[in-house]
Amino acid sequence: MSKPATIFIDGRKIDAFEGEKLLWVALRNGIYIPNLCAIRGKEHPSGSCRLCYVQVEGCSEPVTSCTLSVTDSLSVQTRSPQVDRLVKSAFELLLSHHRLGCRDCAKRKSCELLKIAKERGLKMKLTRLALLDQEAEVDDSAETFVFDRSRCVLCGRCVWICREVIKVGALGFSRRGIKRVVTTFQDVSLAQSGCIECGLCVEACPSGALYFKEGKKPAAAGQCSCRGG
């Protein structure tokens, strides 16, 4: 890593390195910034979830911290009225594409949407938008886990893991715009897709889209490397 840099997050002095992405520096220092699509080690952050906004001193508009490279004496605020407004809108847009019903969701204990809502005081319900009712089929063809597209927030973590870590490449994005989905080649079921059921995508999934079948959670669960611990 390059030159050391001293930065200020919410007035706190923090040591980092130039060129690092601000989001990871903040998370490493125990400052939580909401994020879903950020993947540690991914060279070009997709910056698609629009949740990790911060206010940078000297910038009129908030910036996404996953794409912001650290420079010396950078000073940012994790909250501001502008940031909160953007995050609130982005969060509601994500929810409009995510089937709620947390009570029956297998991931309710580890759900990152719930975590973000709690952290930022956001409601887990739609106030301005209508729910996009997805008539998606639930793929339970895999032996150990289930893929429920109606709860997918398209963060791309599973796709990245499958491709870059496991080097299988069974999962990928397809289609465009409102029809965008995470799917397999020619939309075949997971069992036919060449998936090796390593289960890392299930652990990477921040929502209830991918979850282990009851009693099928591997005992020695692999460490998910996309979040860097």
Binding site: R163, V168, G169, G172, R176, F185
Partner: peptide
């Protein structure tokens, strides 16, 4: 056709689902 996409993916050393993703994007 599917076999064509798979053959192209193999030649370019990328997952077949990438080719499918692109073909459904445009």
């Amino acid at each position: 056709p599917g076999p064509a996409m798979e053959q192209i993916a193999a030649a370019l050393k990328i997952p077949a689902v990438d080719v499918y993703g692109l073909a459904t994007f445009y």
